[in-house]
Every structure is written in C-alpha cells, then in structure tokens.
Amino acid sequence: MKPFTYQRAGELRDAMAGVAGTPNAKFISGGTNLLDLMKLEIERPAHLIDINHLPFNGIEETAEGGLRIGAQVRNSTLAADSRIRSNYPVLAQALLAGASAQIRNKASTGGNLLQRTRCYYFYDRNMPCNKRKPGSGCAALHGFNRMHAVLGSSDACIAVHPSDMAVAMLVLDASVETMDTEGVTRQIPVGDLHRLPGSTPDVETQLKLGEMITAVILPPGQPGRQLYRKVRDRASYAFALVSVAAIVHVAGDTIAGARFALGGVAAKPWRVPEAEAILLGEKVSTEMFERAADIALANAVGRGGNDFKIPLAKRTIQQALAAASQRG
C-alpha cells in the first residue's frame, strides 16, 4: 500500500483547502470502496481528507416539498427514514437491495454515487484496462464480460456502474448538489453526473478536481406506485445483473404517469424518456410494456458473455412495469 497522509476535516473550508493544496488528494467518506481499491493499489492517493465529520448528515425538507439528503447520510439511515419509506419507497428498496447491512451502515450517500465499477479486469493490475490505465486496452471487451454494459459502452470500456441507489434517484429526478474548491455550488441532475466511457473511461463523472458532493435533492414525491426490482445471481450481497426502478401511476384504467430507469446495464443509471412517453394515456397491457421495453433497449449491444442481459432487461422491465401498475 502506498503511504499517504490523512487529514480529518472538521469544516468544509479545511477540506477544500486540503484538496486544493495537495496533489493527488482524495476525499474519503465511508471508504467501503476506496479502501479496497487502495489496498490493491488501484487507487493511490497521496493524501486523504476524511469528510465524515462535515455537517452533511441531515435529511431536511425543501421549500419545494422535496427532501435534501446530506452527502454524509449513511445508506442505512436513508433507507430507514420514514419520509423516504413513505414518499420515495423505490429509493428505500434500492438502498436495501445493495451490499450488506454492515456496508450500508458505513457507506454514505455521496460515496455511493461515486463508487467505481466492479469490472474484474479493473480490479487486477496485471490486466489491460483503459479506466485504470488509459491506453492499455480493455480486457473485458473480448474476455469474460458477463457483468458488463449493453448500453452506452464503447470499445474502450464496457464497465457498468454498480450503484442501486443511483438508479432509484434517477427515476425520482434527483439532483446532486456540489461545491468546488472556490466555494461555488451547483446542481447536477443525477442522470448527468456520470459520463459514458467514450474514449476516456478514466473520466467517470462531471465533477471537477476537488469538487465535492454535498447533498442530493429529491423533488416532491410523485403519484404512482414505486418499486425497485433487482435481478442477481444470489438472493443477497451481489451486484445487479439488471435492475429496474419503476413508478407507474394508473388513473382509472389508463396510465397517467410512467417512468423507469435501468441499473447494471451501463456506466451510469439509464433512462429513456421516449420509452416512458409512449405509455401515457394507454391502458395497462403486456403489449405496451413490451413496446416500452423495446424502445428502452433499442440501442442495446451485447458483447458475448452479457448478451443475455438484453432479453433479461426486457423481461424485467415488463415485470416491473406490470407490478408497478397493480392497484392496492
């Protein structure tokens, strides 16, 4: 393990000064991913700034009637919050579908969004990986790629983002609130936070150097039934092969609102508004859900080992939309 210096930031300005003033510095929150990567020397920061003690651990109601979730709120705290459970159940379900109880107790909201891919080749320093070592190639492209992306990938990288929470936040139209080293804040829709790999898979988000996620903003709750459906190889403690976050609002016998997002299929949580739009005003039917799924997956490309994800995603979308359109 590469030696590093450590700083516990008591105030935001300390953290920002630390990250601005030290080359190769990194924030650490729960550390559930970063520490693993440091042990393997995939992450090699020279300086760690512990932001666990910054005052971002509250969940507050916003003037608009939504919620502002501090970036340091733990996954388990967020999942247990009564407002989340009643108004944003898809988020609570997604959180509880992720990792293990111990990890959720440690992992933070901001850190969850910024966790890195679980691609096996990314984790093995002997293997080519454009994300870990730009220009070295992608071992997954023609290798064992069962877990890899079917949407938005490139020949440079076919890794997926492993977060469940982010998929639910995307379907809820959440935004992240950030602050840069100059103290400037901005809001980024969750769907725009992560970048597709293109030719630079090592650049994973829109965040600038030293820019910190301080909160996630949820808009007011939407009418409709919410659910998170995660498909995985075992009943718990496995990353999604495919997941679907869905909200369907059925009024009378027609669909008054429908939105869904996919996880486990791309380098970011995935949403296709055109697929949602065709459902509006339609009656609940397998055929409509199948059409929506087909539109959502129109651009999906398998890489061999992950070909099954395309029919699996289609079937899971149909199942999730059907379940979310049930009454009661």
């Binding site: 096996y120 093995d124 002997n126 293997m127 071992a139 023609h142 290798g143 064992f144």
Partner: peptide
Amino acid sequence: DPRYGHFVNHD
C-alpha cells in the same frame, strides 16, 4: 480466462 490463464473473478 484462456487468454491470460488467470481466474478472472478471484475475490
């Protein structure tokens, strides 16, 4: 992985 001779999912 038959290209490299290593166990890919080694954790």
